[in-house]
Amino acid sequence: MFTVETGSGFWNPIIWAIAIFVAFLLIYILRSFGKKEYKKDTEQIKSFLSGNPEYEKEKMHVKASNLYWGFTTSLKGLYTILRRMHTGNTSDYVLWFVIILAIFLLIEVL
């Protein structure tokens, strides 16, 4: 009754909900065999820095734009061309508009 049938597959969310609930209970019971407590307020709870000097939090923060380094460095040829095209100047963007519009009209007429 709750099954979703696409043309080429099916899925029932209630079954998955019951399954993950049962698995969650099982894993919770399994995890409670471990040890819960730790020594608070000692040296243990500081972050691990492997001997590097520790600055205040603003200087040690990793920027979120660091995620894009992998993509921009691997596709370097594409991104240098794109960065040169994006000058930040509105007039240049309107110029691109006009050029592409002219190309479309030419293709339409011919």
């Binding site: 998955w16 399954a19 993950i20 698995a23 969650f24 099982l26 894993i27 919770y28 995890r31 471990g34 040890k35 819960k36 407590e37 730790y38 020594k39 243990q44 709870i45 500081k46 972050s47």
Partner: peptide, 28 residues
């Protein structure tokens, strides 16, 4: 048997909840 240390800069409820969810989803 080892201790379960939650660091002081962490968010405790996400830190403790997320390993359970990962394993439960993989089993499912």
């Amino acid at each position: 048997v080892k201790e379960n240390i939650v660091p002081e800069n962490a968010i405790p409820w996400i830190f403790n909840l997320v390993p359970l969810l990962g394993l439960a989803a993989t089993i499912s």
